[in-house]
Design a protein around this nucleic acid. Structure first.
Length: 586
RNA sequence: CGGGGCGUGGCGCAGUUUGGUAGCGCACAUGGUUUGGGACCAUGGGGUCGUAGGUUCGAAUCCUAUCGCCCCGACCA
């Protein structure tokens, strides 16, 4: 430890907001090089390698073969798939000395599909599952939260190549199971959720979310059945309407200066449910753009992913004040569906059920009350456009849904033939016909997984590593290293544990005990052996568990056996679904 | 990109309003006293105040430009 390059910090660097970032910096695991770009110091790199190793074992077990693809990629292949334009500013682009375009790989569908289309020609060559663990580069709009959103990060990405949909199904299930095993083996609490497919493309997709309050992802789940989805994707059904009264006559009401939902409801003395919000969006397509009016209940939020998908647009964004005025003829805050012309109107499922609604009057300082769907206004389509909320009925079983947060550490996609068609990756089938290879893609963010583990496992003193990813299982702390008796005992224990295959580190620094204890806690080693005068009086040593602070007084002779049993107990059991045998422990 | 905040020894900050020769705590070095939960005393080293330009007798401080970092939104492992 006196030689270890792990500079610890007493104070929290000002730039670090979230716990994982703070502790990984303070405990000397990482250092920042630039925004979203990190160096991994020895302890951090040990943790990453442990995570990688579990991932590697499970990928191999699930039929994966490890390769290494180039990080530096020629533009041509990206132009061929069409993503050179579509991927946008997130792609790190550069030129070589001959002015030829290149990019740094943010993901490898293009490269691997190019490789496979050249080498695979027969159904006999399929299926194939190829993966790599490699550094990716993405020029993120906003890197943040330390390792959770980086511009450069290590990713495991596997690509499956199958003959048909049934084959893809099999690959997908194999990966699904492998991912569950990985995160279980790493000792993390996680949920698998249905997800939107985003820029990678494809049909079905699941995200593996490590549960943590600091997570960027909002998860909707049901305790009654096992439905779980991220909020972008989660179906928000119709909630039974509690509006029973008869429709009344529509009226205009002046609402001077009241433009937010809060202001209008407070001014008119109605609940937010009674309001129908009209939001003007700008929908951008490949060749054009148009404004769209979206109606949701006042207490709901528009789900832009659902909106984008419903419109089949490249992206949608809230219109600026100028566009709102051009579309509605009124300043922001007074848009309404009644009499709105020249713009598509989409309504969320709940909107038609709002009886005697309050809506904007399309005129400054004016709202309309007692507005009713069908009679006073109409939408071009009524569909699910809002975020699911806590208490909504589960789309599968109807029980009330719950919300939680998580960090997306893994994501699996059924790509189908999107890339094989774009790049012409075909094989000759048994039937003598050419077919497109059916693909899937499966990613795990390795540093993000490390950060997620810290988010989930820490206390006020520092990190509490789960055994499977701790950089060392045991730290030996001689209280007074300059006392020969302690030094000798500590060193002999170190040699013995190391010889027994236990990953051990010894704090041989000339520091006071308090400093060593603080650093050991901060760094998060799951077990600490304290060699000091107190226990030594009885000829014993202390074994302390980081997780709960409990201490065992041990005879010197029983230390190794006890440490080994503690470690064994710290590795989650993961059943082998074929043999039922426990596998993967150490 | 829009909105907010911040750049002063390795880390955390004060000083900027009202220009006047750069300071505190931690860390680091040396000596001494200490020694089971971030010790104490003494001494010491280290900063072109993000960068460039300007105003001024004089700029960390005022002006202009620029770069970087953090937070909130659209993206994603």
């Amino acid at each position: 430890m006196s030689r270890l390059f792990a500079p610890t910090l007493r104070e929290v660097p000002a730039e670090a907001e979230v716990i994982s970032h703070q502790y990984l910096l303070r405990a000397g695991y990482i250092r920042k090089t630039a925004a979203g770009i990190y160096s991994y110091l020895p302890l951090g790199w040990r943790v990453l390698r442990k995570i990688e190793q579990v991932v590697r074992e499970e990928m191999d077990r699930a039929g994966g073969q490890e390769v290494l693809l180039p990080a530096l990629q020629p533009a041509e292949i990206w132009q061929e798939s069409g993503r050179w334009d579509v991927y946008g500013k997130e792609l790190f682009r550069l030129k070589d000395r001959h002015e030829r375009d290149f990019c740094l790989g943010p993901t490898h569908e293009e490269i691997i599909t190019d490789l496979v289309r050249r080498e695979i020609s027969s159904y006999r060559d399929l299926p194939k599952r190829l993966y790599q663990i490699q550094t990716k580069a993405r020029d993120e709009i906003r890197p943040r939260l330390g390792l959770i959103r980086c511009r450069e990060f290590i990713m495991k990405d596997l690509y499956s190549f199958d003959r048909d949909q049934a084959g893809l199904e099999e690959s997908y299930q194999a990966m699904y199971r492998a991912y569950e095993r990985i995160f279980r083996r790493l000792g993390l609490r996680f949920k698998v959720v249905e997800a939107d497919t985003g820029a990678i493309g494809g049909k079905d997709s699941h995200e593996f979310m490590v549960l943590a309050d600091t997570g960027e992802g909002v998860i909707v789940y049901c305790e009654a059945c096992d439905y779980a989805a991220n909020v972008e994707r989660a179906a928000a059904g119709e909630v039974a309407s509690d509006f029973q009264e008869p429709a009344e006559e529509m009226q205009a009401v002046p609402t001077p200066g009241r433009h937010s939902v809060e202001e209008v409801t407070a001014y008119l003395g109605v609940t937010a449910k009674r309001l129908v919000k009209t939001l003007i969006y700008r929908a951008v397509y490949r060749d054009r753009e148009e404004p769209v009016a979206v109606l949701v209940r006042g207490d709901r939020d528009v789900n832009e992913t659902k909106l984008k998908n419903a419109l089949d647009a490249l992206f949608v964004e809230l219109a600026d004040a100028g566009l709102v005025e051009r579309v509605t003829g009124a300043p922001v805050g007074f848009a309404g569906p009644v009499g709105l012309r020249g713009v598509r109107i989409l309504a969320d499922l709940e909107v038609p059920r709002v009886v005697n609604a309050v809506v904007g009057g399309n005129k400054a300082d004016l709202h309309l009350v007692n507005v009713n769907y069908g009679r006073d206004y109409q939408a071009e389509a009524v569909l699910d456009l809002r975020n699911a909320a806590a208490g909504d009925p589960c789309p599968r079983c109807g029980a009330p849904l719950k919300l939680t947060r998580g960090i997306e550490v893994g994501h699996i996609f059924k790509l189908g033939t999107k890339y094989s068609e774009a790049l012409g990756a075909t094989y000759l089938g048994e039937d003598g016909q050419e077919h497109y290879i059916v693909m899937g893609s499966y990613g795990i963010g390795i540093p993000r997984t490390m950060a997620a583990a810290v988010e989930q496992n820490h206390d006020a003193d520092g990190i509490i590593w789960p055994f499977p990813i701790a950089p060392y299982h045991v730290i030996i702390v001689p209280v007074n290293y300059d006392v020969p008796e302690q030094q000798d005992l500590a060193e002999s224990l170190y040699r013995e544990l190391t010889a027994a295959g236990v990953e051990t580190i010894i704090d041989d620094r000339d520091e006071r005990a308090g400093v060593k204890f603080k650093d050991a806690d901060l760094m998060g080693f799951p077990l600490r052996i304290t060699v000091g005068p107190r226990a030594l009086k009885e000829g014993k040593v202390e074994l302390r568990r980081r997780a709960d602070g409990s201490v065992l007084l041990l005879e010197r002779a029983e230390v190794v056996a006890r440490v080994k049993s503690e470690i064994a107990a710290g590795y989650p059991e993961v059943e082998d679904e074929n043999t039922g045998a426990d596998v993967g422990v150490r």
